[in-house]
Computed example of a mutant assay.
Amino acid sequence: MDNISMVTLVLLVINGLVTYQGLNDFNFFNKYCFSINQINRGEKYRFLTAGFLHVDWMHFIFNMMTLYFFADTIVSVVGVFYFLVIYLVSLLVGNVLTYQFYKHVPFYRAVGASGAIMGVLYASIMLNPDMVLGLYFIIPIPAYLFAVGYLLYSLYGLQKNNDSIGHSAHIGGALAGLLLIILKFPILVQLEYKLIAILLIPVIILVVMYKKNKIG
């Protein structure tokens, strides 16, 4: 971890500590998770705090590994402040989108940093379109295919809606990360318009699902 930036390390630690507390203290988890019922009662802080909780350690590990591998690509290009803007805005946009889908479902609850993580992933892919990942640490796959595939899986999870993971937040976070990095570097629209179109496929499918009343 010699090359990890301090901001990435701090986020890893905060997520770890909050998740640990949440998994070991039901009252803590219940107080800070994303809960439509409680948000409708005025507890708006949950839009932020839910993004640091996870349903289990596998959920946590997957998110934090993604953060570890992709965060510093952004930090090295745009600096700490704008990276935090991407992280936090993606987190909030993801949860606000979730609220819009489920605001009339009072008992809907979810947690996860995935909105922020998907924002980081999409932004880093735009900065390094040729990035390749090792699927299962073995099979090489373009990072953009992994990102789109993961969001398509999120759409499936969104339909099932049985695991307390905020799947809709994944889509909102990814879109926020994409837009924020384009706002920072508008030239990307000209240089990577095909990549942008591919990355937007899950967003388009989500809109269609919503219009067909397959969400909420």
Rank of each mutant, 00 (worst) to 15 (best):
106 P>D: 05
98 T>C: 15
102 Y>W: 09
88 L>G: 11
94 G>M: 03
87 Y>Q: 08
35 S>W: 04
53 L>M: 09
90 S>K: 00
14 I>Q: 12
105 V>G: 07
56 D>F: 14
30 N>T: 02
113 A>P: 11
70 F>T: 10
10 V>P: 00
5 S>A: 03
15 N>F: 01
27 N>Q: 13
95 N>Q: 14
41 R>K: 15
55 V>D: 08
27 N>P: 00
1 M>C: 08
86 I>T: 10
68 Y>C: 10
95 N>H: 15
53 L>H: 01
25 D>I: 01
105 V>N: 15
46 R>H: 04
28 F>A: 12
38 Q>A: 13
56 D>G: 14
6 M>A: 03
29 F>K: 07
18 V>D: 00
31 K>T: 14
61 I>W: 06
21 Q>Y: 08
9 L>W: 05
99 Y>E: 01
61 I>N: 00
22 G>Q: 08
26 F>K: 13
45 Y>G: 08
105 V>H: 11
113 A>N: 03
17 L>D: 03
6 M>V: 04
53 L>A: 07
56 D>H: 13
67 L>Y: 07
90 S>Y: 02
110 A>D: 13
3 N>L: 05
92 L>Y: 02
21 Q>W: 05
23 L>N: 08
61 I>P: 00
17 L>H: 06
58 M>E: 10
44 K>I: 04
99 Y>P: 01
19 T>G: 13
103 K>N: 10
64 M>V: 10
5 S>D: 10
40 N>T: 05
21 Q>G: 03
22 G>P: 11
83 F>G: 00
95 N>F: 07
98 T>R: 15
84 L>N: 14
39 I>R: 07
49 T>I: 03
67 L>G: 01
47 F>L: 09
38 Q>D: 13
28 F>E: 07
50 A>C: 15
49 T>H: 08
68 Y>T: 07
70 F>W: 04
93 V>A: 09
107 F>R: 11
80 V>P: 04
67 L>R: 09
55 V>A: 06
44 K>D: 05
9 L>D: 00
84 L>I: 00
42 G>V: 02
82 Y>F: 15
36 I>G: 08
63 N>A: 07
25 D>C: 04
30 N>M: 05
1 M>L: 09
1 M>D: 06
102 Y>V: 01
27 N>K: 11
40 N>Y: 01
104 H>F: 03
22 G>L: 03
113 A>E: 03
54 H>W: 10
31 K>D: 13
44 K>G: 04
28 F>Y: 15
3 N>A: 06
13 V>D: 06
76 S>W: 10
87 Y>N: 03
9 L>Y: 12
